[in-house]
Structure formats: structure tokens, C-alpha cells
Amino acid sequence: MTTVARDTGVGQLLRGWRQQRRISQLELALRADSSARHISFIETGRSRPSEEMVLRLAEHLDVPVRERNALLVVAGYAPRYTETALDDPSMGALREGMERLLQCYDPYPALVLDGMYTVVAANRASSLLMTGVAEHLLTPPPNAMRITLHPEGLAPRIVNLPEWRADLLAQMERQIALVRSPELRALHEEVAAYPPPERGADGRRGYASGPQPAGGGRAAFALPMLVEHEGRVLSFISSIATFNTPMDVTVAELAIETFLPADRETAAYLHSLTS
């Protein structure tokens, strides 16, 4: 349902999301059970979308929860999704569930990150990755991107730092395009400006002057993070999980990142630490 609109600007925002998703007005209309003419009227400000229509279009455009609230406000409606601090008593069950999940991943490192890559929880095994990291990078609230890419962080121990750094920066760029966060963009600019990794004569950082990865270090199915630890190279594959159908902005932006062994030697070594 729509009414004749004053120019609220929500149509321009919805058009921006549609173009970013590379979806035509007709395709969006079919997904949202509407018409291309109706979508065109909304985008040009000739019609004011109902609250239900704003949410329906946002759903089909895969707009992040925080941005859905912004769309509703611009359209003249109240925000639909709450933003509750993680330490709020109402989040007790969520915190306990995440702690149990992190413990289940031991002896493999696992972290819970928010939308700004702040580490909000970690399991015992994650301390292995923090070996040698400067204290100022671990001071609360610690940031996973700073810890990983800072010259005084994990970076000097990452054997394939050029590849891993490029992958992390590309990941941040994709997220910036999705959430349009000035704070996230500032973080990206900061970590991207850290001194580049040292390179050998062949232009790559290799194993020639350091320990060799026990299992070859490479995984055929994904880029591993190769980390030096006490004279050996451990190989990890990163996996990220999020919550389905979140109704809170805080929960929507949480991600559980686990570092699973990419070879048998790494797995055996991690299990040996617990035994």
C-alpha cells in the first residue's frame, strides 16, 4: 500500500541499494510482489511506501539491519530493530550460548567479533595467536584487524602476509560497500596504511629463511593463514558464522570466526597442547 508522497528521500536510498545489488526495477518488483511502475514511483518520490513495503524491499535487497532502521526513519516511521548492548542483562542467554560455542571449538582458536572487528569474546585457544602481540594492541577493546595487520601485532608471524593482508582488506572493502560506515572506512584506511610486509628478492615473503610448514601449508580449497609459532608453521582456514534472522542490530553485526587446522600436522599440534 502506498500514498501520494512528500519527497522523503527514502526512494533515492532504495534506488541506491537496488543499483548496488545490480537488480532491475522489474526483478525487484517480482521479488516483492509488486510492479515495476510501483517501484519506479517509490524511487522517484511520487509515492510514499508504507512501512511494510519499506521492510519488504529492504529484505529483498538484503539491506543490513542497521540500514533498515535508517530507511524507516527517512521514510517517516519509527525504527523497527533495537540495538541492545551486549552486556545488557537481556543478552545473558546470548552471551552464555556464545561462550559455550567458543569452548566447543577448543583447541582451535575462535573469536566473536562485532561489526567493527572488535573482539567481544574469545576462547582459550585463541591465546596462541596472540603470542608476541604488543600489549597496546590487546588493551580493551582489542580490534582483530589491528591485531592481525599491525607491525607489532600478528603480522610479523604470518608467513604469507601479502596474500592474507590483501584478502582481509578486500573483505573490509566488501563490508564497507554493504554497510556504508564512516567508522569502518576509517579503520580500513588505518590498517591499509600500516607498513607493507617485507619482501624477498622474488617479491614474495617465503619460507627460505624461516621454518617450513609441516604439512606443506597449502589447502586446495581456501587460502590458509600460515602462522609461525615456536619454530613451526601452523596452517589455518578461517570460517565465519553469523546469526540467522536477527531482530537486534547488535546481534545482526556479530560474527563468530574460527580458525580450523588446514592440515593434519596443525591439528595434531593443537591437540598436543591440551593434552
Rank of each mutant, 00 (worst) to 15 (best):
S127R: 15
R232C: 09
H150P: 06
L86D: 09
A252E: 01
H60P: 04
T8S: 06
T274H: 11
M225R: 00
F236G: 01
D202N: 05
A32V: 04
A144E: 15
T131L: 14
A262L: 03
L137I: 06
S238T: 10
T139L: 12
Q175Y: 09
L154Y: 08
W17G: 01
M116F: 12
F41T: 00
R22W: 11
T8G: 09
A166W: 05
G200S: 04
T84H: 09
H136I: 06
L111D: 02
V112I: 02
R204I: 11
N160K: 07
V159Q: 15
D263L: 06
G115P: 02
N69Y: 03
G115N: 05
L178W: 09
V4E: 14
R46N: 04
L223V: 11
A122E: 13
L223R: 09
A121M: 07
P261G: 08
E27V: 06
H136A: 05
V191D: 06
A134N: 07
S235T: 13
S127Y: 12
R124I: 12
H136D: 01
R6Y: 07
T3C: 12
S209Q: 14
E189F: 06
A208I: 09
A32M: 09
R218W: 14
A122L: 14
P140Y: 02
N160C: 01
R18W: 03
G206L: 01
R21S: 05
M1T: 10
R80L: 10
Y207M: 11
M172C: 03
P151Q: 14
N143T: 04
P182F: 13
P156A: 08
L86E: 12
R46Q: 02
L128A: 11
N244R: 13
